[in-house]
Design a binder for these strands. Structure first.
Lengths: 239, 239
DNA sequence: CGACAAGTTGATGTTACTCAAAAGTGGTGG
DNA sequence: CCACCACTTTTGAGTAACATCAACTTGTCG
């Protein structure tokens, strides 16, 4: 499975992704497959949604990487969370007239409109709700990472998280996956400077824990990395 | 309005709080008022929900302060978000078997069961959805705060946020409100040490920007504080 | 080849942490 | 009412982690 899937623009089967979250019926599966034919493409480094602008209907990331971000008046930037293939952006649950965060395409991104659940009690609605709960889980993790982990620990924790999220959609092998972020972007995600990210990566590399090259991350010692960051997977909470 | 409402254990009228989020009908208003008669009390410093435990049905905070927290294996703690009177904990949207975060009572807290919306399209469901969207907004803000603000800026930003959230439920006057957190707890919220929080507060006090005494926060110069933290209110996104 | 973005390095500065202890605060029981 | 206790706040001195600034190198793509 691995090599083909490590290709960057790799698409994700939405039907299989959301089937993992709830037992979709054939109509719902069909709706997801149909949605994938109405793609919208956004070039790398462009804004998908702008902060404060009226919100578009919900979409699903089909391929590519995006991120929610906040830019301060003086130019400081913080990546609030990553949006990876299979992730749902937005919801139907209420009118949210304006976007509370900006959304940025890190690579070329393709999106499709998220099919509207036929019934609020159906499996598709349930899958969307679980997807939203996962998003929330990752927001909490981002907060703990920024608040209480050192630079080394932050890097380890983030890479483990990305691996885990890409693995769910079949885009990561156990120890390697594409990492479509410059060190500067990693820095804005981790609340560090790019210089410090660079030095931290070197240190982790020297210790034989991981390697980053050519946009591919190799996690060489997942056990040590996991302990380093006290990393806990979301499946722990699904049992 | 002010002085009585600054009392710590002050209860909040749930009907009025959720009416601000969506135009509730009389039946829904009644349901909220009824809910407030079935109170559950949790003593200060006790866990309301434990991380990893099965999740209780949704509740609403009627009085007191609580917080979601994550404790690392080595004892480091991060407060992920505050839960203030009028806040909704949990949702019906899906079965979430286990709590992804611990929930801690900072003061004595009273909770009531959240009435279940009769219809998923009704105003009560809409109010809950808006409440969830606000929660999400505050999570993003916590991330930006931890990732990119200095200690002074973090303190300013957090206090402005608490003021804003308490004001919505009538528990804050324009420039003062109860702050039921020790400096140690502030530190765990802001990703700092309590020693540094202490020094930062002294510095802000010296500059005449704010004062903290006897569990009451006074914001003496909201304009400067707002600019200091580039603070934006959620109403900006509601228009 | 040349240009531009990304990654790397060194020197130095600053912010926040650590450790340790003292001083203040509030509640409790004798 | 006082003595005591636990908790919180405050202070000082020394240190570690991360930021800043500026230059240099490498890689990529036309």
């Amino acid at each position: 499975m691995v090599n083909g899937n490590l290709a960057f623009g790799q698409r994700v089967g939405l039907a299989s992704r959301f089937s993992q979250l709830a037992p979709l019926d054939p109509v719902e599966l069909r709706a997801l497959e149909d949605a994938e034919t109405a793609l919208r493409t956004v070039g790398a480094h462009r804004e998908i949604f702008e902060e404060g602008r009226p919100v578009a209907p919900p979409s699903i990331v089909v391929s590519g990487w995006a991120a929610r971000s906040r830019v301060f008046a003086d130019g400081r930037r913080q990546i609030l969370g990553l949006l990876l293939p299979g992730d749902l952006i937005g919801s139907w649950r209420h009118r949210q007239p304006r976007a509370a965060t900006g959304t940025l395409a890190l690579t070329e991104v393709t999106l499709c409109p998220a099919p509207r659940p036929a019934s609020p009690d159906g499996a598709l609605a349930e899958a969307y709700a679980r997807s939203a709960a996962l998003d929330e889980f990752y927001l909490y993790r981002q907060i703990a990472r920024l608040g209480r982990l050192s630079a080394r620990e932050r890097v380890a924790d983030l890479l483990l998280e990305v691996r885990e999220r890409l693995a769910v959609v079949g885009l990561a092998s156990p120890d390697r996956f594409p990492l479509r972020m410059t060190q500067e972007l990693l820095a804005d995600t981790l609340g560090l400077t790019s210089v410090h990210v660079n030095r931290t990566l070197q240190s982790l590399r020297r210790d034989g824990l991981l390697d980053l090259a050519g946009g591919i991350a190799y996690l060489k010692n997942i056990d040590v990395l996991t302990r380093l960051a006290d990393h806990r997977s979301p499946e722990l909470y699904e049992g």
